[in-house]
Simulated scan of single mutants.
Amino acid sequence: MQKAQNKLAVLSCSHSASEFLFPLPGKEMDAQYEAFSLVGKTVKEQLGSKLLEAPHLTEPCESLLAGSISMALCYISRLQKNVPAGVKMHSRICVITGSNEGGSQYITFMNAFFTARKLGIVVDTCALDKTLTLLQQGCDITKGQYLKVEKLDGLLQFLLWVFLPPPQMRHKLVLPPAPKLDYRASCFCHRQLVDIGYVCSVCLSVFCKYTPICTTCNAIFKAPEPLTTKPKKKKKTDKN
């Protein structure tokens, strides 16, 4: 409602699918206030139906969050094509998640973050449960804001204070300090951060231990040769 030209899209993300909750296909609103009045109702109804349809899981699974961010980038790119020549959209993505870290989607996350930076799209993250290193890196790459909400009672206040103001105005606000960023990569075998590891030369997957076959792209590698040390030369001693 801050501007008549503003548009909003809401996506849901689960372990099995990423879908649009708003806007729905075939439902276009002419008036800005009419659209605003239907956002809450539509999102609530759609999200409730998705939760009821979701299968019961016996084991934890990763959500397809990287795919949802990619869908948002495609949606923004499609809208940009309809903008008149010479007009630039100031788009941004706000991720609100309570999921765990998706280490297996590392490459997809990085591709999405660097694509967003190239397109000038800011990615913000509101973490509701755990600290998410990958999303911290994404916010830093795209000049976005990362915040971990400790108490859900203040969620609305944080959304209005931290994430609602446009990025161009944030330097004038007193925002929470940015967390200490850890740019170490997580290995694809144990999902743990590593200081030194093995990198696949084909798909750039990171492993903490040597593996003859890359589990991501099935590339085959030769076993590393053992390090050989040259014998030290003996010093010559003068004989009297």
Rank of each mutant, 00 (worst) to 15 (best):
P177A: 07
I220S: 08
L159C: 14
K3Q: 07
F188K: 13
V162G: 01
R92T: 02
T216M: 04
T108E: 15
A66T: 04
L65I: 13
I69P: 00
K236R: 09
I96S: 12
A116I: 05
F114K: 10
L134W: 03
S77L: 04
S186C: 03
N240H: 10
K233H: 13
Q192I: 02
K209I: 02
T211A: 05
C187A: 13
A9N: 07
S63W: 00
Q192A: 13
N82S: 14
C200F: 06
K130S: 14
K148W: 02
K41P: 00
P165L: 03
K209A: 03
E150T: 15
P25M: 01
L132W: 11
L47Y: 12
T58N: 08
F158G: 00
L119C: 08
N111D: 10
P231L: 05
V83G: 06
L173N: 04
Y210P: 00
L47A: 15
T42G: 10
P25Y: 00
N218W: 03
M71L: 14
V123N: 05
G48N: 13
L164N: 11
L135G: 08
R78W: 05
K151T: 13
G154P: 00
A17T: 07
H171I: 01
D124K: 06
S16V: 05
Y33C: 07
L155G: 05
I196S: 07
Y210S: 04
S12N: 05
F163W: 08
E53H: 07
E28A: 11
G120D: 07
S14V: 01
A72P: 05
V194C: 09
K88S: 06
C139S: 14
K7R: 11
R170D: 05
P177W: 06
L64T: 07
L65M: 14
S16I: 11
P231F: 11
V95R: 11
E34I: 14
F20G: 08
E34H: 05
G26K: 03
E59D: 05
C214H: 07
V194Y: 02
C13Q: 05
L181C: 08
S18Y: 09
C94P: 03
F114L: 14
M89D: 08
C187E: 10
R191H: 13
L160D: 07
F188D: 01
C126S: 13
S37Y: 06
M29N: 08
T229S: 14
E101P: 00
P23V: 01
S70D: 07
V199I: 15
E62T: 11
L147H: 12
E62P: 02
G48F: 04
T97A: 08
Q32S: 13
K180E: 12
L64C: 01
D30F: 11
